[in-house]
C-alpha cells in the first residue's frame, strides 16, 4: 500500500486514527464522517494515498464509485433518506481540504440546509464554442482504456496521465494544506 504517514486519511485507513467503518475491502474503505453535513454522511477513500482523482488508477476509481453507490443505496434503505448526493472536491479551488482523494456520500432530506446548487451562467455562443472545441480536443483519446483492456499487448500511451508538471503543481498545492 502506498500510504503517506502525514496524511490523516491514511491514518484512518490504517486504523491509527479511530473511525466508524461501514465498509472495507482491499482497495477501499468507507467511514462515517464525525463532522458530517448530515448524520450518516460517509466518505469513501482509496487505501492507497492519492491526492486527486487524476492519480487514482481506473480500476480503483471503478471500485470506489461502486462502493459509493452501494453505500448510497444502503443509506436510502436504512436511514430513510429522501435523497443522496455523491460529491467530490478535486483540488483546493474545488473545496478539497485534505490531500487524499475522498468521495462524499451525503444522505439528504428536504430543507436540511445543505446547498450544492450553483448560479447558472449564460455564456455567449462564442464562449460555448471555444470551450467545446478545447474540451473535445482533450477528450478525443478517452476510451483508449477500453482498447487497452481488450488488447493489453498494445502499449499505447496512457491518455489520462497527468504530465509531470501538472502532477507537481497539484502535489505542491495540496502539500500547502495543514
Amino acid at each position: 500500500m502506498a500510504t503517506n504517514e502525514n496524511c490523516v486519511v491514511c491514518q484512518i485507513a490504517s486504523g491509527r486514527v479511530p473511525s466508524k467503518k461501514v465498509y472495507e475491502d482491499e482497495l477501499a474503505l468507507a467511514v462515517l464522517d464525525v463532522n458530517g453535513a448530515n448524520p450518516g454522511h460517509c466518505f469513501i477513500i482509496p487505501k492507497n494515498h492519492y491526492p486527486i482523482i487524476e492519480q487514482v488508477p481506473d480500476m480503483e476509481v471503478a471500485r470506489l464509485f461502486q462502493v459509493s453507490n452501494k453505500i448510497s443505496t444502503a443509506i436510502f434503505e436504512s436511514l430513510g433518506a429522501q435523497g443522496t448526493n455523491i460529491f467530490v472536491a478535486n483540488g483546493i479551488p474545488a473545496g478539497q481540504t485534505v490531500a487524499h482523494f475522498i468521495i462524499n456520500v451525503i444522505p439528504r432530506k428536504e430543507n436540511d440546509g445543505i446547498n450544492l446548487q450553483w448560479q447558472p451562467r449564460q455564456l455567449s455562443e462564442e464562449e460555448m464554442s471555444t470551450v467545446e472545441l478545447k474540451l473535445k480536443d482533450q477528450s478525443k483519446n478517452i476510451g483508449n482504456f477500453e482498447k487497452e483492456k481488450k488488447a493489453p499487448r498494445l502499449s499505447a500511451p496512457k491518455p489520462v496521465a497527468l504530465s509531470d508538471d501538472e502532477e507537481e503543481y497539484f502535489e505542491r498545492q495540496l502539500r500547502r494544506l495543514p
Binding site: G83, T84, N85, I86, N90, I92, V131, L135
Partner: peptide, 22 residues
C-alpha cells in the same frame, strides 16, 4: 480534460439522487 484543456485548477463531481438532493 478540464485540467489540461481549459486551465481548470480543480473540478467538482456532483451526483444528486432525488429531488431532496437537488
Amino acid at each position: 480534460s478540464m485540467l489540461r484543456g481549459i486551465d481548470a485548477h480543480g473540478t467538482n463531481l456532483i451526483v444528486a439522487n432525488g429531488i431532496a438532493a437537488g
